[in-house]
Design a protein around this nucleic acid. Sequence first.
RNA 1: GUGCCUGUAGCUCAGCUGGAUAGAGCGACGGCCUCCGGAGCCGUAGGUCACAGGUUCGAAUCCUGUCAGGCACGCCA
Length: 644
Amino acid sequence: MLTLKETLRAVLYERLNTIYPVAPEDIDFLYPPQAKFGDLALSLPMPLAKKLRENPRAIAKKMAGEIGALPGVVRTEVAGAGFINLFLDRDSFFRERLASAGRSALRPEERKIIVEHTNINPNKAAHIGHLRNACLGDTLVRCLRAKGETVEVQNYLDDTGVQVVDVVFGLMELQGKNIADLDGIERFDYYCWDLYARTAAYLESHPESRGRKAEILKGIEHGREPESGMAFAVSRRIARAHLRTMERIGAAYDVFPCESSILGLKFWERAFALLKERRAIHRAEDGPNAGCWVMKVEDEDDREKIIVRSDGTVTYVGKDIAYQLWKFGLLGRDFYYEPFAETDGRTLWISTAVPNDRTVGFGGGSRVYNVIDARQAYLQKVVVQGLRALQYEAEARKSVHFSYEMVALSLRSLKYLGIEATAEESAKGFVEVSGRKGLGVKADDLLDLLERKAGAEVDKRNPDMPEADRRKTAAAIARGALRYFMLKYALNSLIVFDVDDALSFEGETGPYLMYTSVRLNSIFRKLSEREGRDAAAPAAKAAAEGKALESVSEAERDELWDLISTAAKLEEEVLHSIASLEFSRLAKFAFLLSQKTNAYYHRRPVLAEENEDIKNARISVLFYVRDGLKKALDLMGLDIPERM
RNA sequence: GUGCCUGUAGCUCAGCUGGAUAGAGCGACGGCCUCCGGAGCCGUAGGUCACAGGUUCGAAUCCUGUCAGGCACGCCA
C-alpha cells in the first residue's frame, strides 16, 4: 500500500499542482471507514476549500474530473462533505503485492542507531517493570532493523552505583561474607532481591552505618579491595542472571557499557573539560549552590541543575552527559571491550577500562534512543540540554527519550504476593513496584507461572508431542503472552499489573495471535501432506496472471479483499510505530489482522473446497496474509510454534 | 507552587498531526464442534467521549477554563 500511495501521490501532484496551491505532502490518503466508500480517500478538497474560500464538495467534483485516470484505480467517486474516494483495481493490486514478496519499500535513514534499554541496576533480580522496558526496547530494535537500519543495542550497567553498594554492604557487613562465599549462593539474583530490601531497611533505621556505606562507595569508585572486587562480582553475576531472564523473552544486546569503565577511563573528566571549555556549565559563586558547577535549565524560571557537587564529585546527570556524548562519538575516545557471553553465535561485549588489543568498537551513533521510564523525563531533558549547551544541536535533536509509564501492582496481585495493602494504597487502587522495598513480581516468577499454565494447556491438547517440544512450546507461549501484554498498552498508560489479566490466553492476547498463525500454518501443512500441493503455487500463478479473485462470489471477493488490503498496510504500520514509538499500534494491527483471518478461515474452508479455482483463490490470499502475520509477530518477538 | 501526562461501555483499554455511523478485549446474556485445531467463531445488551465555553463546513481529537487522578521538580540514582 505504501508503494501505491507514493505512486499516486506523485501522479496527483503532477496533475494538480498547476491548478491548486498544493505541495506533495498535502496529498495524503486516508482509509475510508466503510468498504462502500472505496479503498483510499482523498480529503484534499477540504483543506483547499478553506484556502480558496469555496465549497469543498464543489472543489471535489471539479478535482475528480481533473484527476482523470489513475494507475491502479478503477474508478473515483465524490462523496460526503468533499471526499474523493478511490476504488482500486483489486486483481492488479494483489498481483503487485504477491510479486513484491521479499522486497521492502522501507529504507534506512540513519548511519547507525543506538538503542539503550533494560538498564537494570545489577544488584537484584529483574521485575515486571523491567520487562516493560525490555519489551519496548527490543521491539523498537526489531522494527528499526526491519526498516533496514543499522542498530546497536546497549544495556548500561551501573556497576559502581549506590544500589550495588547497598548489596555489597549487606553481604559484607550484615552477613560477613567474602567474595569466595558468593559462589555457594544459589539463585543469586533472588538472594540479592531479599538482601537488598533488608539492607535498605537496615540502612534506613541505622543512620550510624552510613559512614561505612560511604566508605564502601569510595572503595568501589577507586578500585580498592575487597569492596571493589565484591561489587564487580555482584554486578557481573547479576548481569548474567538478567541476561538469562531477558533471553527468555527474546531480548538480546550487543554491548554492556559499564559505569566502572566510564570512571576508569576518565570519560567524565573529558566531558567536564568540554563543558567548561564551551561554557555549558559555570561555577556558582554564591547562593544555595555555591561551590558547585551548575547548568542552566531551560525553564520558565531560572533553574540550575548541579553537575558537580561542591565536594568535587560528579552527579548522575553529569555522568549521563558523558555517556550520551560517547554514544554520539563526541567524546573522542572509546572503551576497551571483552567478550561477556555468546548467544546464537554472536558475541555480547562488555566494556572495560583495562587496555587490550581487541579491535571491537561501539558507540558513535547518528541517532540515539534511551528507553527509560517517564519518571526520568526531567533528567533526560537536562542531558539533552547538555548536548545543546555544547552546541551539538543536531545530536540533541536526535537524542530521543523513549518514555513510558511505569508498571504498578494491582491490589489483587499484592494478595498473591502475600502483602497487605495500606489504607492509602487501597484508596489508590495500585501499588508502585519498588525494588528497594522488595515489592514487585519477579520477572522469572511471572514467566514460570505463564509457562506452567501454558504447559498444562499444551499437554492437554498435544499428548503425543514429545516432552521437550511441549516445554519449548510452553516457553514460546509464555513469552508471547508476556510480550504482547507489555506492548498492547499505549506508552503513557500506567499498567496496573494484575496476575490474572497477565496470565490470560484468551481474547486480545499474544497466544491468540500465535494460535491464529499456527492454525493457518496447519492448513498449509495439510495441503502439502494430504494433497501434495505446493502451497506457494497458486500465489505464484496469481502473481503472474493477476486473476486470483475472479472465481469467487461477490461476497467472498470482498472478504478476501479486506484481508489483502489490511495485510498490505504492514509496512506503513511499522513506519508509524517507529515514528510515534507507539508499538501498541503494531500490536493492534496484528490483532486486527488475526481476527479477520480467524473469522475468514472459519467461514471458508480451504481443504474441503471442491472448486479448484475458488480453492486456489483462498490459498493464494491466505498465503499472502500468512506472510504478513508472520512478519508482524516477529517484529513483536512472538514465535509461531508448530503446534500449540 | 511550577511543569508534564491522564479522564471514552460495568472493568481494562484503542481511536487524538480535526473528517463519513465512536471501536476492541474482558465480564453479562444467547447460539456454534458428523466439517482445515473451540487458546476459536457468530449474535445481543451496554457510551451526555469528566464538565463548561471557544475555533471550524465538521471536534472524542485543537484552544481556554473548571473538577478529578497520576508523575516529576535533591550537592540520590
